[in-house]
Nucleic acid binder design. Structure first.
Length: 213
DNA sequence: CTCGGGATGCGT
DNA sequence: CGCATCCCGAGG
């Protein structure tokens, strides 16, 4: 299970968001690793982005967004659900990628199609706000390596991002062939004016676990 | 301190 | 479409 390096997160947020698709979120609960393949995300582009929490400035709540990349920003929404982001770009940029849906891979027993359900299924709450995703027990991995030693699923087949703007890289974070990414406006941010219309929601085409709405 | 509303999900 | 449920951030 190849953990994503700090440099992966320390890049342009849209690039990170798109390259997170197909990667694996790993969360150890008890002695079991819960693993889900990330198939839907949204990019939040910093204080300038009126849909981003960091647009309110540096507050107690948004503190983590203003911190270094590769950390989890987890917050409570509507008094009953949690949402999980990964912080991107250099410290101070206050950008992040919201994880919206997973495809269950291992040890997941409840629904994962939506940011609140995803956190429920992975047992993610505000205790994990600020968590460094380069430590053990909670991180994102580049490839599935089943703890039972099973062969890789379809997600490990050669894949490609069909966006000429996204260039392949030489390291293990390289985008893979055949991934087709759908781009849509972000959900639930109608208050953000022109920013609500930008195509910053990304998901894998035809994946059955994309959140509805 | 109060108050309005929220990066949601579920039932009607 | 209503609503649960509570924290956040703004304003007095």
């Amino acid at each position: 299970m190849q953990k994503l390096p700090r440099e992966f997160y320390d890049r342009d947020t849209v690039t990170v968001a798109q390259e997170l698709l197909g990667k694996y979120l790993v969360r150890k609960v008890g002695n079991l690793n819960r693993i889900g393949r990330i198939i839907e995300v949204e990019a939040y582009l910093g204080p300038h982005d009126l849909a981003a929490h960091s647009a309110k400035g540096r507050t107690k709540r948004t503190e983590v967004m203003f911190g270094p990349p590769g950390h989890a920003y987890v917050y409570l929404i509507y008094g009953m659900y949690h949402c999980m982001n990964v912080v991107t770009e250099q410290e101070g940029h206050a950008s992040a990628v919201l994880l919206r849906a997973l495809e269950p891979i291992e040890n997941i027993t409840s629904r994962t199609q939506g940011p609140g359900l995803l956190c429920q299924a992975m047992q993610i709450d505000r205790q994990l706000n600020g968590w460094d995703l380069l430590s053990e027990g909670f991180y994102v991995a580049a490839e599935e390596l089943s703890s039972r030693g099973l062969t890789a699923g379809p997600s490990v087949f050669p894949q490609k991002i069909l966006d000429p703007a996204v260039k392949p890289r030489d390291d293990n974070c390289a985008p893979r062939d055949d991934i087709v990414i759908i781009k849509r406006p972000r959900i639930g941010v109608d208050y953000a004016g022109a920013w609500a219309k930008k195509l910053l929601r990304f998901y894998l085409k035809d994946n059955a676990f994309v959140s509805r709405r």
